[in-house]
């Protein structure tokens, strides 16, 4: 062994949260990190996005066969009552890339949220879903909304028709 090697006495510093634990527990902790999926719901505007960026990268890199699984996980995060507005926005941006009619069914009630930002973020996800379910959901929301999101939603339906 090199003379420069300093052999630990196996004791952690008193300030270490793992101090005093048995060797097995300490070893287990070496393999644990925060689950980035749990961070999404607590994301706030301006927060460090490094953790949630890993999820973004997973989804961007995913094979299309993996999209349904990721969609389900995102919808579960979105359904979390504690999910923040910024977290919901992050989820909707990712759903916009992979959402299917399943997302339309799960989220369409939010198209008419009293929170204008939530209503728009939901539309961001649903507008990208092809097919009649999404069109019908947007049309229904346009009829029920008031204010500028009503115009935005109606415009989205018209723009969708034009694009087709």
């Amino acid at each position: 062994m090199s003379k420069k090697t300093i052999v630990s006495d196996g004791q952690r510093a008193a300030s270490d949260p793992l101090a005093g634990q048995t060797a097995d527990a300490r070893y287990k902790s070496f393999n644990m990190t925060v689950d980035p999926w749990s961070v999404i719901a607590t994301l706030d505007y301006g927060d460090d996005r490094t953790m949630v960026s890993t999820i973004e990268r997973m989804i961007l890199d995913a094979d299309p066969s993996q999209h349904p699984g990721f969609e389900e996980k995102l919808l579960k995060c979105a359904a979390d009552e504690a999910c923040t507005e910024a977290g919901y926005g992050f989820i909707c941006r990712l759903l916009a890339l992979i959402a299917s009619p399943k997302s339309v069914a799960a989220l369409k009630k939010n198209l008419t949220s009293d929170n204008e930002n939530i209503a728009f973020l939901t539309r961001m996800a649903i507008e990208q879903v092809p097919g009649e379910e999404a069109t019908a959901a947007l049309r229904a929301a346009a009829g029920a909304l008031k204010g500028r999101e009503a115009e935005g939603c109606a415009g989205a339906v018209a723009a969708r028709t034009r694009a087709q």
Binding site: A96, F120, E151, G152, A154, A156, A159
Partner: peptide, 15 residues
């Protein structure tokens, strides 16, 4: 192809 367009906040749209 989904990234070729994006939603617009109301009242704005391309309609």
């Amino acid at each position: 192809n989904r990234l070729l367009t994006r939603a617009m906040r109301g009242p704005w749209s391309l309609a």
